[in-house]
């Protein structure tokens, strides 16, 4: 039973307490770069989730084989292999998303969230815990990106997941689709997130 509770906490910490975007500020480049719509945010989140879980599994399986001196390059190669898989699968099956995410797909390699979890968690824990950690963190990341993408899409385009709820000639805050909108939207979302979580704990 104790193990059960532990795993539940392990899963949930990535979503709220240690949310990679709002609390730990990891993986900021894709967070800001691809979230001009909710769909792009969701796509990027899922791609990252996949790489994170797979690299956590492999790292936790072979952690005892890797000499500690070369562990970082070894982790990077493991991560890069899965990123290449994601790149090829997206290009073949979802070319639309592949084009939208563009350079940020190969850049999943240098997403500090993934390397950070490999180093801080998967290299010290067993495979099951690592999978759950990867799922929690990945879902937290996906959730944050989707919320940010949805916020920017609603404000900037008057639509959500490409479903338009304003008439075509209604004026929207185009700023939020443009690069500055990413910073500003994330700033206010972080304030909101901090407010809600701090009032909950008090």
């Amino acid at each position: 039973m104790a193990e059960q509770i532990n795993q539940k906490e392990n899963f949930l910490k990535g979503i709220i307490k240690d949310n990679p975007v709002f609390v730990m500020l990891l993986g900021m480049c894709p967070t800001l770069g691809v979230t001009s719509s909710a769909f792009n945010g969701l796509g990027m989140g899922i791609a990252t989730l996949f790489v994170l879980v797979m690299s956590n599994i492999v790292v936790s399986l072979i952690k005892s084989q890797i000499p500690s001196k070369v562990r970082i390059p070894a982790f990077i190669i493991i991560i890069a292999s899965f990123v290449t898989i994601v790149e090829m699968v997206l290009e073949a099956y979802i070319p639309f998303l592949f084009e939208q995410l563009g350079i940020f797909i190969p850049l999943i390699v240098v997403n500090c969230l993934i390397l950070g979890r490999a180093e801080a968690f998967a290299s010290k824990n067993n495979t099951i815990s690592s999978i759950i950690d990867g799922l929690g963190m990945g879902l937290g990341f996906t959730l944050a990106l989707t919320i940010l993408g949805a916020t920017r899409e609603i404000l900037g385009n008057g639509s959500i997941f490409d479903f338009k709820f304003l008439s075509d000639n209604a004026s929207t805050l185009i700023l939020f689709i443009l690069p500055p909108g990413a910073f500003i939207a994330l700033a206010y979302l972080t304030v909101l997130f901090n407010k809600t979580t701090s009032s909950k704990t008090n």
Binding site: P180, G181, I184, A187, Y188
Partner: peptide, 21 residues
């Protein structure tokens, strides 16, 4: 208080980005 730290930095970055726009 709620804006201290990360949010204010992001906001400043946003305004800077707006200037570069």
């Amino acid at each position: 208080k709620a804006m201290q730290g990360v949010p204010i930095n992001l906001l400043v970055a946003g305004l800077l980005s707006l200037a570069f726009l």
